[in-house]
Structures are given as C-alpha cells and as structure tokens.
C-alpha cells in the first residue's frame, strides 16, 4: 500500500467548494416568490447529501489529525 504523507493527502483533496455552499447561495439569490419544483427539490436534496458527506469526510480527517501522537518541537512530523 502506498504510504502517503499528510501533505500529500491534503494536496490530493479535490479543489472544490462544498456544493451545499454554492446551492445555498443560488437559493438565497432566487426571486422572493420563486418556489422550487419537485425536480428542483430532489436535485437540491442530492446536493445536500453530497455536501453533508464532504463535511463528514473533513471531520474524519480532522479526527485522525487530532489523534496523531504528539512529538517534540525539534522533530519534524512525517510529511512536512
């Protein structure tokens, strides 16, 4: 198995904005009286699910980082 450093893992993350942020912005800009169609609601639910998944992934990464054993200041952690 290829051993990736934390830097490599971070650098390999897709450079996209969480889709929930983009959709939230779109929805907030819609006309006041615009009501979503059933299809738009279904699509939005898919985006919400993808956005939530992305948050969970980030949280998993964070949990792994937090669990990393502490090291002395003079020692450079693997990957940096």
């Amino acid at each position: 198995m290829k051993h990736e450093s934390p830097f490599e893992i971070l650098a390999a993350e897709p450079e996209t904005i969480n889709p929930a942020i983009l959709l939230a912005d779109t929805l907030m800009r819609r006309k006041a009286a615009h009501v979503l169609t059933v299809e738009e609601i279904i699509d939005a639910e898919k985006v919400l699910e993808a956005g939530t998944d992305e948050i969970r992934t980030v949280e998993r990464h964070k949990a792994v980082f937090v669990k990393t054993a502490p090291a002395s200041g003079s020692r450079i952690p693997v990957g940096f």
Binding site: N18, A24, M28, L48, G51
Partner: peptide
C-alpha cells in the same frame, strides 16, 4: 459548509 447545509 455546515451553516450552508443547515440552511439548505
């Protein structure tokens, strides 16, 4: 993103 999901 968390706030965006809540809003959505």
């Amino acid at each position: 993103a968390v706030n965006a999901c809540e809003l959505l």
